[in-house]
Every structure is written in structure tokens, then in C-alpha cells.
Simulated assay, not measured.
Amino acid sequence: MDFTPAIKLLNSCNTVLILSHHNPDADAYGSSLGLALALRGVGKEVVVANQSGKVGRFSFIPGFAEVVDKIAVNNPELIVFCDCGELRRVGERFEQEIKTIKCSTINIDHHATNDLFGSVNLVDEHASSTCEIVYNLLRDAKIDIGKEVATALFSGISGDTGSFQYSSTTEAAFRVATELVAFGADAYFVACNLWASRSLAALKLEADVISNLKSHCGGRLVEGLITEEMYNKHGVDSSEADFIVGRLRDIKGVEVAVLFRKEDDIWRVNLRSKSTALDVSAVAAKFGGGGHKAAAAFRSKMELESFHDQVIRELMDLFEG
């Protein structure tokens, strides 16, 4: 990948706004915060904003406290989008505000469905994570990577590879992770906070979902459901449910899992598969979403009954391909 155009833009500006997708995950936070910390180290003024603000379970990522939920910078010279497959992934409110800002943009992402909306696009669908791309950008730009930057970037790689278990775990991912540890990333600290700190209430919600699973195709496809009443019953924040669809996929014999989640009058639908041969991103795209072949999602404001059966049919069709 040629990082030269992006490096020229970074070198030519002093004020940078960094955005990532709403409902952020470890890669969204890790890439935006890791880049922000590195750029501040060379004297740039950087604001990191996310429409969802601060999602508490990622508070361990260095720089997290500085994330804001509004575009709190006037006339930035550059906007960098991290982990956004398309502009609208920043959220409806942010998307409208961005349209009034006239400046260059850098789009850093690893989704195959990315529509290359930036002035400069650093998109590599073979990268394990956006954090991996940010790391290579910083190395090419000869910007120092300290312990905090390394920990932020390691967090995103760990998150998007499922702690180095998913098919996205490549030789390059291991190499970058190893180099980040050499730069000071605390792998144990990240593992404890990202993978071993779930609340008892979240586990009870997961048990509730699993006890009511529905299966199709002889158990190769399973579906789970979380209603707003279930969130209230267990006192669980919606961000704590992000693990559950992966747990459904992990069941022996299951090849594809779908989780329907009702949150704030919107249905969030998470799709996972054990094999990239079963491309759930193609299904998500039919409903206006996207993602990766083994992990994708979409959102809908319609009633579940109006699209549920079609989703299940589309997923069942994957086994016929």
C-alpha cells in the first residue's frame, strides 16, 4: 500500500479531526485513539469524536477519556475516518455536520465493502483490522510509537481477530502485534480488559438468549433474540451484548449465527459465520448493511416481523451455494 499521499496530507496540516463508526468496537476506538496519540506526539492538534461517545467497556484504551460525542472543532484542516466502510457509518447526526466542512479526508479501513469515499483511501480488505493499517501508516511516516499508542493499536487488532482466533488472524497480524508488544503494548492488560471482564448481568442475558435459541438447517444456522425488555430485566447496557452473537457461532455444529437486537426503536442485526465461504456480508448488504465475510451487520427501523423471515431465508440460501 502506498502511504505517501496520506503522509503528505498529515504533514501539511495542524488541526485534525478523527472520526470512527457509531456503536464503536475496539478497532474503531483503538485506531482513532492510537492515531490521535501519535499525531499529538508530533505537535498536531487532534480531536477524536464518535457519535456514540464513550462506551464504557473500552475505557481501558489509552486516550479514551478524550473522546467526545460532538464535532468539537471549527474548520479542521483534515478529517480522518477510521474503520468506516462508508461515510454514513459515522452516524446520521455526524454525517450531516460533516457535509458542511470543506477539507481533505483520509479514509482508513479494512472492509471489502468500503466505497472509497475519502480524498485519500487507505483500504486493505486483507488487513486484520484498521489498527493494523494505522500501524503501517505510522511506521512509513516515521512517527514514534510509544507504549500508549502501541496499547491502543494492539487493542483493536485483538478485538477484530477475536484475540487472534478468527480467520482474519494472518501472519501480518501476528507480526504487527509482536512489534506493538516490543513498543510497549501490554498484551495481558488488553486481554483482561477486553476478553475477561464481562459482568454477571451480561452473562445472565447471554444465558437467557441461549435458552431461547431457534435453529435451522439441522443446527447449522441459529438465531437469537434480545428485546428491550430483556435488557431492562438484566440491567445490561447494549454494548455488553456485543459478545453474544460470537458465542452463538461458537456452539458446536453451528456454522452461521444471527442475533436480532432491539435497541432504541431500531433493530440491530449481527451476523457471524465460521467460514468465509459462507459470506454473511452479502446478506447484510441486501438489507443496507455490510462488513466482512465472516462478520457483518445491518440496522432496520422496520418491525422485525417485516424482515425476519427474509433474513433467515437469505442465510439458509448460503448453504445452497
Results as ranks from 00 to 15, higher is better:
residue 1 M to L: 08
residue 4 T to R: 14
residue 7 I to T: 05
residue 8 K to G: 11
residue 11 N to T: 10
residue 19 L to W: 00
residue 30 G to M: 09
residue 32 S to L: 02
residue 33 L to N: 00
residue 37 L to H: 04
residue 46 V to W: 00
residue 49 A to D: 01
residue 50 N to H: 01
residue 51 Q to P: 01
residue 62 P to H: 04
residue 64 F to T: 03
residue 67 V to S: 02
residue 72 A to V: 03
residue 78 L to W: 01
residue 79 I to Q: 00
residue 83 D to E: 14
residue 83 D to S: 01
residue 84 C to G: 04
residue 85 G to E: 10
residue 89 R to I: 01
residue 89 R to Y: 03
residue 92 E to W: 00
residue 92 E to A: 09
residue 98 I to H: 01
residue 99 K to L: 08
residue 99 K to G: 07
residue 99 K to S: 08
residue 100 T to S: 15
residue 105 T to Q: 03
residue 105 T to W: 01
residue 108 I to Y: 02
residue 114 N to H: 09
residue 114 N to A: 14
residue 119 S to Y: 03
residue 124 D to H: 09
residue 131 C to F: 06
residue 133 I to F: 06
residue 135 Y to G: 02
residue 138 L to P: 01
residue 146 G to S: 02
residue 147 K to L: 01
residue 148 E to I: 00
residue 153 L to S: 02
residue 156 G to L: 00
residue 157 I to Y: 02
residue 160 D to I: 08
residue 161 T to V: 06
residue 162 G to T: 15
residue 165 Q to M: 13
residue 176 V to P: 06
residue 176 V to Y: 03
residue 177 A to Q: 08
residue 179 E to I: 15
residue 180 L to Y: 07
residue 181 V to W: 00
residue 185 A to G: 07
residue 186 D to N: 14
residue 188 Y to L: 15
residue 188 Y to V: 15
residue 200 L to K: 11
residue 201 A to H: 13
residue 204 K to S: 07
residue 207 A to V: 03
residue 210 I to Y: 09
residue 212 N to Q: 13
residue 216 H to I: 01
residue 220 R to M: 14
residue 233 K to E: 12
residue 234 H to G: 04
residue 235 G to I: 08
residue 237 D to F: 08
residue 237 D to W: 04
residue 242 D to I: 14
residue 247 R to A: 07
residue 248 L to I: 13
residue 248 L to P: 14
residue 257 A to Q: 08
residue 257 A to W: 05
residue 264 D to I: 01
residue 270 N to S: 15
residue 276 T to I: 12
residue 277 A to D: 12
residue 277 A to I: 07
residue 277 A to P: 03
residue 278 L to H: 08
residue 279 D to P: 11
residue 280 V to K: 12
residue 282 A to T: 11
residue 283 V to I: 13
residue 288 G to S: 09
residue 289 G to A: 13
residue 293 K to Y: 06
residue 298 F to C: 06
residue 298 F to R: 03
residue 299 R to N: 13
residue 301 K to C: 11
residue 302 M to C: 13
residue 309 D to Q: 09
residue 321 G to C: 07
